[in-house]
């Protein structure tokens, strides 16, 4: 197991290095950051001083080394547009994005579970087929359009839920802001989280259904039925339990996707998260923010992937048996 995790770790570090290189080269080849920071009438000497101060005159390899070192210390420099440290901007917005992604992952998982089990168990009922067709329709409607429809229905016509923002936010010790402890915050997260989670929901539902169909065909299920166990015990105790290993893995991996796709949802619902900051950075060519977001989100991805890999080892008893038996 140690070797497995070590190999994974090495791969993660490689990914992070490649991403840092991309982020670094963005600085290198894209425009002159000085031009972005100062006005047209700034004298040349002042520009040169700024250039020297920012270390833009050093050789490439030193600059890359500095970049990685600084990134490791969460120092990504100043935003061209906001003239503030990038890390402050990101940290301020990170809780909003993480909360949104987690809530939508939870919504997606706990709605997909019953739907997937149902369509797997009763695959010939018309309701199962309707659910599956609906999920294909759901995949074909882009996230932003679903968001717009939700806003129009629940905020404009019915007026039940707010259409933008996070609602009232409480600051926890450590600087983490949460909207999950206030009524207005909870109301505000329902629409964006559902919008973000729908695509993931359909994916997990289809996965659970496919896994259920696979497991229900196996001999041990037939044997469990022959032993006279109740349907409930067979379906949930034996069948569902054995589908959960791949499902948990995929859900974990999809969490990374949710954080990235939050860019779209945050834009529709004006959610004050990292995604919107990134989007503005692209429009304004704010390179420090772009590269910091890229590095941060890759780091999140890599950590999530690593945790899922380890979880896979922990959850699946077969892998553990192999280990105690001496392995291959």
């Amino acid at each position: 197991m140690a070797a497995f995790i070590l190999r994974r770790l090495a791969q993660s570090i490689l990914v992070m290095l490649v991403v840092s290189l991309v982020a670094f080269y963005m600085f290198q080849f894209l425009g002159d950051p000085i031009n972005q920071m100062v006005g047209i009438d700034t004298p040349l000497a002042e520009r040169e001083a700024l250039r020297e101060r920012l270390g833009l005159n050093d050789p490439m390899i030193i600059r890359f080394g500095k970049f990685v070192l600084n990134a490791a210390q969460l120092d990504f420099g100043l935003s061209y547009q906001h003239k503030q440290p990038v890390v402050d901007l990101l940290m301020e917005r990170m809780p909003a994005t993480i909360e949104l992604s987690f809530v939508s992952a939870i919504i997606a998982f706990f709605l997909a579970l019953p739907a997937g089990v149902y369509t797997g168990l009763y695959r010939n009922r018309w309701s199962s087929k309707a659910l599956l067709t609906l999920s294909l329709v759901g995949i074909s409607i882009p996230t932003f359009l679903i968001g717009i429809l939700f806003i129009y229905l629940f905020a404009v016509i019915l007026g039940w839920l707010p259409s933008f923002g996070r609602g009232e936010v409480i600051t926890l010790p450590g600087g983490w802001t949460t909207g999950l402890l206030t009524v207005s915050g909870l109301k505000a997260i329902i629409l964006p989280a559902t919008t973000l989670g729908l695509f993931t929901l359909t994916l997990i539902m289809r996965l659970i259904r496919a896994e259920m169909l696979e497991v229900l065909r196996t001999d041990y299920i037939k044997f469990a039925r022959a032993r006279g166990l109740t349907n409930r015990a067979v379906n949930f105790g034996h069948a569902l339990k054995n589908t959960l290993v791949p499902v948990i893995t995929v859900t974990g991996l999809l969490l990374g996707n949710l954080i990235a796709f939050a860019i779209i949802t945050e834009s529709v619902f004006q959610w004050p998260g990292m995604g919107r900051l990134f989007l503005q950075a692209i429009q304004e060519v704010d390179l420090p923010v772009m590269s910091a977001y890229l590095v941060m989100i890759s780091f999140l991805f890599v950590v999530i992937n690593l945790i899922v890999d380890i979880l896979y080892y922990v959850v699946d008893p077969r892998l553990r048996v192999e280990k105690s038996g001496g392995g291959h």
Partner: peptide
């Protein structure tokens, strides 16, 4: 469509 919707 998504990129255009996002304004980029």
């Amino acid at each position: 469509a998504t990129l255009s919707f996002l304004g980029v």
